Amino acid sequence: MRYKIALEHSNEGVAASVLGLPGCHSQGADEAEAMLNIQDAIREYLAVQRELWTERDVREVEIEA
């Protein structure tokens, strides 16, 4: 799956946020580290979401962008 990532550069490093996953953020000393860290954050975010939705009736819908 592909996600759009917003990067914010500062003197302290690079912050990364996933545009489609509210609250999914990470950071790194440089862009490469931030990108690796945000991948881990996405995996953890999705794992938590799966746990929260386990007992619910879930459906998927597809739309054209």
Rank of each mutant, 00 (worst) to 15 (best):
M1A: 15
R2T: 15
R2V: 15
R2I: 14
R2L: 11
Y3K: 03
Y3P: 06
Y3W: 07
K4R: 14
I5H: 05
A6V: 14
L7T: 13
E8P: 00
E8K: 12
E8A: 11
E8F: 10
H9Y: 14
S10I: 04
N11K: 13
E12S: 07
E12D: 10
G13T: 07
G13N: 11
G13S: 10
G13K: 09
V14C: 06
V14F: 06
A15Q: 05
A15V: 09
A15M: 07
A15I: 08
A16L: 12
A16D: 08
S17H: 05
L19V: 15
L19Q: 04
L19G: 01
L19S: 05
G20Q: 06
G20T: 05
L21C: 05
L21G: 03
L21D: 03
P22G: 01
P22V: 11
G23F: 02
G23K: 02
G23N: 02
C24F: 04
H25I: 13
S26D: 02
S26G: 03
S26H: 04
S26V: 03
S26L: 03
G28R: 01
G28Q: 06
G28D: 06
A29N: 10
A29Q: 10
A29Y: 08
D30Y: 06
D30G: 05
E31N: 07
A32M: 05
A32Q: 09
A32F: 05
A32H: 06
E33V: 05
E33N: 06
A34R: 07
A34P: 15
A34M: 09
M35F: 02
L36A: 10
L36S: 10
L36G: 08
N37W: 01
N37S: 04
N37Y: 05
I38F: 03
I38W: 01
Q39M: 05
Q39D: 01
Q39E: 07
D40C: 04
D40F: 06
D40W: 02
D40Y: 03
A41F: 01
A41W: 04
A41E: 04
I42N: 01
I42E: 02
R43C: 03
R43V: 08
R43G: 09
E44R: 09
Y45C: 07
Y45N: 02
Y45S: 06
L46V: 11
A47L: 12
A47I: 08
A47Q: 13
A47V: 00
V48S: 14
V48A: 15
Q49R: 14
Q49D: 12
Q49W: 00
E51G: 11
E51N: 14
L52Y: 12
L52D: 14
W53N: 13
T54W: 13
T54V: 12
T54G: 14
E55Q: 15
E55L: 06
E55C: 10
E55N: 15
E55M: 11
D57Y: 00
D57T: 04
V58K: 08
V58D: 08
R59T: 13
R59M: 00
R59Y: 09
R59C: 08
R59W: 00
R59N: 09
E60H: 12
E60W: 05
V61M: 13
V61G: 13
V61N: 08
V61T: 15
E62P: 01
E62S: 13
E64D: 12
E64H: 07
A65K: 09
A65G: 10
